[in-house]
Design a protein around this nucleic acid. Structure first.
Lengths: 221, 221
DNA sequence: TCGTGTGAACCATTTCACAGCT
DNA sequence: AGCTGTGAAATGGTTCACACGA
């Protein structure tokens, strides 16, 4: 379920601020959604709420981790070590929660050999060699759009079955490879779409939408 | 509608490769979705398909631009000029399609005064001054999580009504401010969720999901 | 009494299927 | 003949409302 990471983020913050128990109502408010929806979502994981009290926040986090498969080890390789690649390596959630930066690749001599975060950048040609021992599960494309297809093929070639593509380019991969796109300009366009709508509204009209919560991407298949 | 940017990306690539006309079936295949859905979506913009032929790709792009409000000028400010902020400034879609990087802000003396892309980085304190003349529509938070709330308040304070937050932190803003989160670790978690599911499947079972298309974020309100 | 868990009602979106235009 | 545009059916997801346990 696509909303679990959202709950988890909120739970983590609640724990940090000292809460130990949490109600569906609180969660719903923070995620800007309906309490019944939260309860439905959480009940799919099992019934660990206590009636009259709420949920044990720490336990809930561990259950969501399990459901997300984040209690396993997920070696991640990142291809393209420019500003974006570096930002990803350093980003908090990327090297935690089961995800492990197992390899960094590029083709530019200027960055090969450089130490970025905990890992040394290698040439893309060495991907196959690395994959034989590490079996990376997830590949991240942070390369320029013009190289993205080629990188995707290299990843698929070494057995990567999940690809997260940051390059603004539609990619072709076999149907059994999971492919998700993160596109920063799409996010901007979505914002401008809703903001135009607001601007176009006649005064007194009910707004189409005022805000959205923590929003992960949906499946679109 | 949240799928329009997806069509647009595909149309742009089709145009680049010389196509001038496109059918709902082609679009659907490339977006990994159903042709009827594509036609429904496009028919909401008006009826510019030609029966027996398909859609004029270039005209469709212009219509989608209009619907997305991308034919207007959207001044964007980015706060936090680390690797992520730089990646955003340089990213293709960010400084095109109506979006204009109108200001870059940070608090670190190390980067203030530096020229990044077309703009010079200023101190966050100067945001208000800049906002009086430029009226930025969209604010992007690329600052560390610990500063995110403060930055959000600064943005709201100068009249920004749409915020795109890259920091892994739940933010508090007035209800009439549109807030979207982009969280790279959430994307990873979604992938690991589906990949765990695949791994857990009994052999011969029908897969829960094989792949997803270009997936922008949904509204979650 | 408070808050979960869940059938049932409700609403939105997706898909089907086909009439109608080119 | 090919492909759009769109009612109508099917599906999936959300919200309501309330019984039940703490």
């Amino acid at each position: 379920m696509v909303r679990l990471p959202v709950y988890q983020r909120i739970l983590t913050e609640l724990l940090r601020s000292g809460a130990s128990t949490v109600s569906s109502e609180q969660l719903a408010t923070l995620a800007r959604m309906n309490a019944a929806k939260v309860r439905k979502d959480l009940s799919l994981l099992g019934s660990f709420g206590t009636r009259g009290t709420g949920y044990d926040a720490a336990f809930l986090v561990s259950q969501i981790d399990r459901a997300l498969g984040v209690d396993r080890d997920w070696p991640v390789v990142i291809v393209g070590i420019g500003n974006l690649g570096r930002a990803l390596v350093n980003s908090e959630g990327f090297s935690s929660r089961g995800f492990r930066v197992a390899g960094l690749f590029d083709v530019s001599p200027a960055v090969i050999g450089e130490q970025v975060g905990p890992v040394t950048v290698r040439h893309l040609d060495q991907l196959g060699e690395m994959a034989r021992t590490e079996r990376p599960a997830i590949g991240v494309i942070a390369a320029p759009a013009s190289a993205a297809q080629e990188v995707a093929e290299a990843l698929v070639g070494v057995g990567v079955r999940s690809i997260l593509n940051f390059a603004p380019r539609v990619l072709n991969v076999p149907a059994d490879v999971m492919l998700r796109y993160v596109d920063l300009s799409i996010e901007l366009q979505v914002m401008s779409f809703y903001q135009s709508r607001q601007a176009d509204e006649v005064e007194g009209d009910v707004p189409l939408m005022r805000s959205v919560g923590l929003s992960p991407s949906p499946e679109m298949g």
